[in-house]
């Protein structure tokens, strides 16, 4: 019962802050509402006994990535941004499209079925601790996807370095 109430609370706040993030005129407020959204996502992970994911969600997304977003926003002139009435002219069309999309998603919900239980029921994760369970899985059964993700990130890092280098040489 308590868990369901908590889930309901988190879900409602996620939807609400998501709407604020899209609709707020001041982009700083958008970023902050996304931060609140990430918090409640972490709350959902906690409800699923995934405490490691919850902590990483806050450290990486709220603590690092959103701060970088704010950094970029601060370099934009917000005074003008706030005064703009609408970013796109076809407001009516987008409303219709998003309402249709929402209706489609709602129509799909009844066909959602719970899958079969896997190797890791709640009791086993509680006994192993979530961090350990995830580490064991990630470094044994899912080592290939993990390595591929690592490689993609490495490419992004090298790409960033190359871009930064070039700009410096041009300036000199």
């Amino acid at each position: 019962m308590v868990n369901q109430l908590l889930f309901l609370y988190c879900a409602v706040v996620i939807i609400g802050t998501g709407l604020v993030a899209v609709r707020a005129k001041n982009p700083v407020y958008s970023v902050l509402s996304v931060m609140v959204l990430f918090f409640h996502m972490a709350g959902l992970y906690l409800l699923l006994n995934a405490e490691f994911l919850a902590a990483i969600q806050i450290i990486v997304y709220a603590g690092a990535i959103l701060v970088l977003y704010l950094f970029v926003l601060f370099l934009v002139s917000l005074r003008q941004e706030v005064k703009i009435e609408r970013f796109i002219a076809s407001h009516g069309v987008s409303t219709v499209v998003s309402v249709c999309l929402g209706a489609c998603l709602l129509a799909i919900i009844p066909s959602f079925k719970l899958g079969a239980k896997g190797q890791y029921p709640v009791e086993r994760i509680e006994q192993l601790t979530h961090t350990k369970a995830m580490g064991l899985e990630l470094y044994s059964n899912f080592i290939l996807p993990f390595e591929i993700a690592g490689l993609i990130l490495l490419i992004a890092v090298i790409g960033g370095l190359v871009l930064a280098r070039n700009e410096k040489e041009v300036n000199e």
Binding site: I58, G63, T131
Partner: peptide, 16 residues
């Protein structure tokens, strides 16, 4: 169980 990560999370939020 994640005490140490919890503290990192909170200290990174304090920067906000």
């Amino acid at each position: 169980n994640i005490g140490l990560l919890f503290i990192f999370a909170m200290s990174s939020l304090a920067s906000y």
